[in-house]
């Protein structure tokens, strides 16, 4: 699936839930399935500045695709990361840089999350795109 298709899939999944409680359950489930980052990458330099919860992000380039791994000490944050990962993981730097990421808005997450949390999500996406940019420059 390309990035756009994955985004559409997530938006459709979210539309199935009637209320946010259900959506949160879904986010939490995704959080539990997040491929976790190796402990040695959980360093302060890899911390993304968030609000109340910590987020670590690591990326590697293999055969033209970027592989992300990440973790957070809060499960809902982990779920949000997992969603972003689902969309961006294992794509080329160009694809990642071109990703619209409008699922954040179309799932209602952007509106629903508090500004600090929404910011955290946006920062995470930004960091992934920055990584993609760095890999692209290296190629």
């Amino acid at each position: 699936m390309n990035i756009q298709e994955i985004e559409t899939e997530i938006i459709e999944e979210f539309s199935l839930f009637e209320d946010w409680m259900g959506k949160y359950e879904h986010i939490i489930e995704m959080g539990k399935s997040l491929p976790v980052i190796a402990e040695r990458y959980k360093t302060d330099e890899r911390l993304i500045k968030g609000c109340q919860s910590k987020v670590w992000l690591h990326s590697e380039m293999k055969e033209g695709k970027i592989f992300f791994s990440a973790d957070s000490d809060a499960i809902i944050t982990k779920g949000l990361i997992a969603m972003v990962m689902r969309v961006l993981n294992e794509h080329s730097p160009d694809e990642i840089l071109d990703a619209k990421m409008d699922f954040v808005e179309k799932t209602g997450l952007k509106e629903h999350l508090s500004p600090t949390r929404a910011n955290g999500l946006v920062n995470m996406i930004k960091q992934m795109k920055l990584d993609a940019l760095a890999y692209k420059a290296k190629v």
């Binding site: 209320d19 946010w20 409680m21 949160y24 609000c51 109340q52 919860s53 000490d73 809060a74 499960i75 809902i76 944050t77």
Partner: peptide, 11 residues
């Protein structure tokens, strides 16, 4: 995490 608890209670 307290943050997770806070979000669910808010719901």
């Amino acid at each position: 995490h307290p943050y997770d608890m806070g979000i669910i209670l808010d719901q």
